[in-house]
């Protein structure tokens, strides 16, 4: 798993690549929460390079999403590959996040 971070105005863009699986879920969650806790704008997570996601990866996004909602900030997702989108659709996560 690789994560690149870019500043986009007040928002942070995180470009994630690789596998959001159980072994990677904790480092992924820690990376998200580090951005939540050290910045003040929105967060956009670009999943174009993600080839695999399990419920552990979904869980990490949900933890970050809850923290952002509490802080009244926006976390959105973009560029999901079809199989990744399918996992989001089945689990109901497609309706929890703004996805572009």
């Amino acid at each position: 798993m690789q994560i690149e971070r870019e500043q986009a105005g007040e928002d942070v863009l995180l470009k994630v690549a690789g596998r959001l699986d159980t072994p990677n879920a904790k480092p992924f969650e820690a990376s998200l929460l580090e951005v939540v806790n050290t910045t003040g704008g929105g967060i956009v997570v670009d999943l174009a390079g993600v080839v695999y996601v399990s419920s552990s990866g979904l869980r990490a996004l949900l933890v970050a999403g809850k923290a952002m909602r509490t802080a009244k900030r926006k976390l959105s997702l973009k560029s999901l590959q079809p199989q990744i989108r399918e996992v989001f659709d089945i689990s109901g996560f497609s309706t929890l996040f703004e996805i572009s």
Binding site: S54, S55, L58, V63, K66, R69, V87, G92
Partner: peptide
């Protein structure tokens, strides 16, 4: 798991068997 209506309502976990 129940289909959550919002991030606040969403429970963490329980999606593995669903998948």
């Amino acid at each position: 798991p129940e289909v959550p209506e919002s991030v606040e309502d969403a429970k963490i976990g329980g999606h593995g068997v669903q998948l």
